[in-house]
Amino acid sequence: MPAREAGEVFGPRMALFADVLSVGLATAVAGLPLLTAPAALSTACAVLRGAREDQPATAGRYFALLRRRLRAGDLAAGALALAGALLLAADLALAGAGLPGAPVFAVTAAAIGACAAVVGLRACARPESLTDWRTAVSEAARDAVQDVGGSGLVLLAVATAVLCSWMLVPLAFLAPGPLALALTAVHVRRTVMSKS
């Protein structure tokens, strides 16, 4: 285990944890307009992926990368994600209104929403999302089908982030960092599995 450097309080293992929290806070701020949420999460995954290559995983690097990449495709991806979330919420609200066949419809809508969320989140973790969302989404859909265990891990990461945010509301501003780390880890896991 590497020794602490002079003036270092926690040691090298805690440095990544602190970086993940700072990137999470930066992601929460960048994603507040909602249309920028996919680009914000994709950038967080890119910054954390760079930590494997000894690049700094800091909020400063995050905002520099985000500033260089925001484009019309990122806003279109955000609009599509927002429209999908609103459609799912409306469908579930209608199912809760007591319409005939509502229980079956609610389960079907929730399953479709979960699948769409997995593909969207896995797309954010892919390097292609920095330049081409269509390629990222098609590759993420293929990964979601071929790597069911990774898709389950993505759902668990989302459930954990939502549960932590619900239990302690201030954690909602830090949750995107650990979520981005989990998405990046699932993508790296998939990449390693496909090479072996």
Rank of each mutant, 00 (worst) to 15 (best):
A175M: 14
G152H: 05
A157S: 11
V169T: 11
C115D: 04
A136V: 03
S138G: 06
E128G: 06
L171S: 08
R122W: 02
V148N: 00
L121T: 01
P178F: 10
V145G: 01
G152P: 04
C124M: 15
A161T: 09
V154K: 03
L130I: 10
L155G: 04
A140V: 00
A125Y: 04
A117R: 05
A110T: 15
S165M: 08
G149A: 14
G150W: 00
V154M: 06
V148W: 08
G120W: 00
A157Y: 12
L121P: 01
A144D: 02
S165E: 05
S138Y: 09
G149Y: 13
F173P: 09
A136Y: 01
E128H: 05
A125H: 04
A136S: 10
L156M: 13
A109R: 05
T160L: 13
L121S: 02
A110H: 08
W166Y: 14
E128V: 05
V162C: 14
V119R: 01
G120L: 03
V158F: 06
L168I: 11
G150D: 00
V169A: 12
W133C: 03
G150E: 00
A110Q: 10
A175N: 04
I112V: 10
W166A: 13
T135C: 10
A159G: 14
A125Q: 05
A114Q: 05
A157Q: 12
G113P: 06
P176N: 03
R126E: 08
R134S: 15
V162T: 14
A159S: 13
E128M: 06
G150T: 01
A144C: 06
A161I: 09
A144K: 00
A136K: 03
V162G: 12
T108A: 15
V145S: 03
A123P: 02
V137G: 06
V118R: 00
P178T: 11
L130H: 11
D132R: 06
L153S: 11
P170E: 11
A110D: 09
A172E: 09
L153P: 09
A141D: 02
V158E: 05
A140W: 00
A111D: 04
V118E: 00
Q146F: 11
P178V: 07
C115F: 07
R134P: 07
W166T: 15
L121V: 01
A144R: 00
D147F: 01
V148M: 12
R142I: 08
G150P: 02
L168T: 10
P176C: 04
T108C: 10
A141W: 00
P176G: 05
G120Y: 01
D143R: 00
E128R: 08
A175G: 07
L163E: 06
A123R: 00
A159F: 08
R126G: 06
R122A: 01
V154H: 02
L156Y: 10
G152L: 06
A117Y: 04
R134L: 13
R142K: 08
A125T: 03
T135H: 14
R142M: 10
A159K: 09
A157T: 07
A114C: 07
L156W: 13
V158G: 09
E128W: 04
G120A: 14
S151F: 01
